[in-house]
């Protein structure tokens, strides 16, 4: 079986937000909605201060609670582990937003909002609404660039290895902190990193089996 996952090396991440921007560009994500975020925080007091940066996105959990709670079947898990939302089925009940312990889901409500308020839609927004239309009142989240993955697979490419089949955030990351691939393939880049560098998941106590691993 294939189970796509991501490994993020926290030692390499330089908090540049390139992943956030690349994700926005790739999917024409409207203002106020993020599929990729950086959580930046500090602990301790001067001079013993630690800065924490956590790039967060949908974890595409193996035991995805969002899939179970979705009453319409709009949220579904593919055989390769990617959790997707069908906007044509979503009723906007927001139960998945509540149920996600990682808070990675957002309801798209305001289609009047512009990137530059009062100045009209930019060319980017106009094209985006045609190419990647979001439906108001439906839930949205990271889909591991499933369009790129599927297009690449059709061409016989390997996600995580070949650029055309790899998520945009992974491609754009300047320090190469992000890796994508098949977690179930023991020879893949991600499985090797998780095994060798003891990758860990966020909140494993929820038994959701996230497919996003972090390396300290």
């Amino acid at each position: 079986m294939t189970r796509f996952g991501m490994v993020i090396d926290l030692k390499k991440c330089i908090s540049c937000y390139a992943c956030t921007i690349a994700c926005k560009q790739e999917h024409f994500i409207p203002p106020g909605i993020f599929w990729n975020r950086l959580l930046i925080s500090e602990t301790g007091e001067y001079p013993q201060v630690t800065r924490w940066t956590y790039p967060v996105l949908c974890n595409h959990c193996g035991e995805a609670v969002c899939v179970g709670v979705c009453p319409t079947g709009a949220t579904a898990q593919r055989r390769d582990g990617i959790v997707t939302i069908d906007p044509n089925k979503c009723s906007g009940c927001e139960y998945c937003v509540i149920a996600c312990p990682y808070q990675q889901r957002t309801v798209y409500k305001d289609d009047k909002r512009e990137y530059f308020p009062g100045q009209g839609l930019t060319e980017y927004e106009i094209i985006g609404r045609k190419l990647y239309p979001f439906q108001t009142g439906t839930v949205t989240k990271c889909n591991f660039c499933v369009e790129r993955v599927d297009a690449g697979l059709k061409r016989g490419l390997k996600p995580g290895v070949d650029r055309e089949a790899t998520p945009a955030c992974v491609l754009t990351c300047p320090p190469k902190a992000r890796h994508f691939g098949d977690l179930d393939d023991p020879r893949s880049n991600v499985a090797t990193l998780v095994r060798v560098r003891k990758g860990r998941q966020l909140h494993p106590e929820f038994d959701t089996e996230p497919s996003v691993f972090y390396l300290d």
Binding site: P71, K89, S91, G92
Partner: peptide, 13 residues
């Protein structure tokens, strides 16, 4: 409901 016309779908699971 954000999409009342799809409420019937909520009985499917």
């Amino acid at each position: 409901a954000e999409r009342p016309s799809r409420l019937w779908r909520m009985m499917l699971r």
